[in-house]
Computed example of a mutant assay.
Amino acid sequence: MNAPIRVLIADDQPLLRHSLALLIDATDGLTVVGQAGTGRETVERGRELRPDVVLMDIRMPGGDGIEATRQLTGLLNGTRVLVLSMFELDEYVYAALRAGASGFLLKDAEPDQLLDAVRRTHRGESLFAPRIVTRLVEHYLDRPTAHRSRSVDRLTERETEVLVLVARGLSNDEISAALRISIKTVKTHIGNLLAKLAARDRAQLVITAYEAGLVTAG
């Protein structure tokens, strides 16, 4: 039997932390290993507990969630951060991704969406609320045409297709269905993308796709 996914909850609202803990601990395959109410405490608890996934609030006292994300992803190999926030502003999304977050979910998400997001984040998939994807697209459309790096130009046609679907937040299963290829082939393409683009994870692939202008509205 696989070990449960170990989750650290970081939020400055005790009631929300408690509610999330009850939900996660009641779910097979997931367990809460700790809670934190400030950015500084989150970093300390993360170092101590080395969780698989951190549910990270953006606005917290004692150092915000973005700085805590930056520190944890730089210190802990294998710990992934899923930002859970009530804010969907561009600067928060982009800053969180730049800091190393693997995904961005809004606090009005359904419980099942949150649990699925934790599992997908643990598997190394990037996950974004649909409204967040729309915001990202609009953000990059408002910028001057992005420069397509030589590394992106070296991608094969199929790799480029996979990169675009990753940037749109599709899971491996969804990419497999969309392109009518096997899951194994999807994983191979993603591995090639990570290597060719020198990306740490899928979230960095998302950033690359937007910066290269590969993703457009619609």
Rank of each mutant, 00 (worst) to 15 (best):
A109M: 05
V133P: 02
A96Y: 04
H147E: 14
Y94G: 03
S182M: 00
G62C: 06
S149C: 08
R158N: 12
I175Q: 02
L136W: 10
L76T: 09
R154L: 12
S171N: 02
E138R: 15
A146W: 01
L155E: 08
E174G: 04
A167H: 09
R120Q: 14
D116C: 02
R123V: 07
N77E: 15
R150Q: 15
G62P: 00
F87Y: 15
G78I: 07
H139F: 14
L115P: 07
L84H: 14
G169D: 04
E91F: 14
G65D: 05
V152G: 05
F128D: 07
A129D: 15
E138I: 11
N77S: 13
V162F: 01
R168M: 13
Y140C: 02
R120C: 08
I66L: 02
S126G: 10
L136Q: 05
E161Y: 00
L170V: 05
Y92L: 03
A146I: 03
T121S: 04
G74H: 03
I175D: 00
A178G: 00
D64E: 01
M60N: 09
T134H: 13
Y140T: 05
S176A: 02
R168D: 06
N172S: 14
R120N: 13
E138F: 09
A68K: 00
R168Y: 14
G124C: 10
E88C: 05
G63T: 11
E125F: 10
E88R: 13
A96V: 06
K107I: 01
V152Q: 01
T160F: 02
R154E: 13
T145S: 12
L127A: 06
D112Q: 12
V164I: 11
V152C: 02
I132D: 05
A101K: 09
I181T: 01
R154C: 10
F104M: 07
V133R: 12
D112T: 11
E159I: 02
T121C: 11
R158A: 14
H139P: 00
D153V: 02
D108P: 03
E91S: 09
R131F: 02
A99K: 06
A117P: 03
A146N: 06
R135L: 13
E174L: 03
A96P: 08
T156Y: 06
